[in-house]
Design a binder for these strands. Structure first.
Lengths: 110, 110
DNA sequence: CTAATTAATCGTAATATTGCAATATACAAA
DNA sequence: TTTGTATATTGCAATATTACGATTAATTAG
C-alpha cells in the first residue's frame, strides 16, 4: 500500500486493524474456515486443500500467526496449526459495541 | 498488492474478505468508531477528527461504502454518512461459527 | 450570476501485498 | 551419513494500497 500512518491512530485502532487486515484475504478466510471445521491441521493439508503453492500458504499462515489468530506447535517433522482464541478478543468486543449501537441508536438516520 | 487470485476461492470467502479488508485499516476503524459514537456524520467532521487530508478521508469513506459497511445520503451541500447494518451480516455469522467452534472443539489441540 | 462550501475525482509518488520458483532448514528414517 | 519429508525463507515480478495536491462537481447563499 502506501504510507500507512499508524503513528497517527490509537494503538487500539492499529491493533484491531492488524487483525482484521489479516482476515481480509480469501485464502486466509479459507484457512480459518478449514481450521474451524477440522480443529487443527498442518501446512501440507492446506496445500492439498487450497489452489496455492506451498510457499504462499506458508506466508499466509505466518501472517495469521503474527496477527495472533492461529498458533503452531512443532510436532515431529510437521507443524500443527490451530485457532488461537486470544486473537479474537479485540475483534469480538469491536463488533459487540457496534452491534449494540446498531440495535439501539440506528432507528432512522440518513 | 499482487495478483490476488479471487477466482480460486468461493464467493463467500471473497465477499467476506472484502468486508474484513475494508475494516483492516486504522483510519477506517476510526471512522467506524466515530460513527458508532455519533450515529452519523459528514466528511468534514472526520477531516476535523482524523489526522488525514480530505481526499484521503473521502477515499476511505468510498471503500467502506463499497464494502457495504456504511451508507451516505445527500443532505444539501454535504453528505450524511451512517453505518449500514447489512454489511455486518456476513461478518457476524463468520465470527459466530468461529466462536462456537472455539468454545466446543477447542479443548486441547496443538 | 458570483462566491462560498462541501465532497468527489484525477494524477502520481511512495510503499505494501501477493504469489511463486528456487533454496534453505529441520527433523526422521534407513 | 544419506535420503526423504515438511515447512520456512529469499528474491523478485506483478499489482494493489495509501496519501495528498490540484482540480472538478454540486449545491447553497448573497
Amino acid at each position: 500500500m502506501g504510507i500507512t500512518k499508524t503513528a497517527l491512530f490509537t494503538s487500539e485502532e492499529n491493533e484491531l486493524a492488524i487483525v482484521l487486515k489479516a482476515l481480509g484475504h480469501p485464502a486466509r478466510i479459507a484457512i480459518m474456515n478449514y481450521l474451524t471445521k477440522m480443529n487443527e491441521c498442518i501446512c501440507g493439508d492446506l496445500v492439498n486443500e487450497l489452489p496455492l503453492a506451498q510457499p504462499t500458504i506458508s506466508q499466509h499462515l505466518k501472517e495469521l500467526k503474527n496477527a495472533g489468530l492461529i498458533q503452531g506447535t512443532i510436532e515431529g517433522t510437521s507443524i500443527c496449526y490451530c485457532i488461537n482464541p486470544d486473537g479474537f478478543e479485540k475483534v469480538k468486543s469491536f463488533f459487540d459495541v457496534l452491534t449494540i449501537s446498531i440495535q439501539t441508536k440506528h432507528k432512522s438516520c440518513c
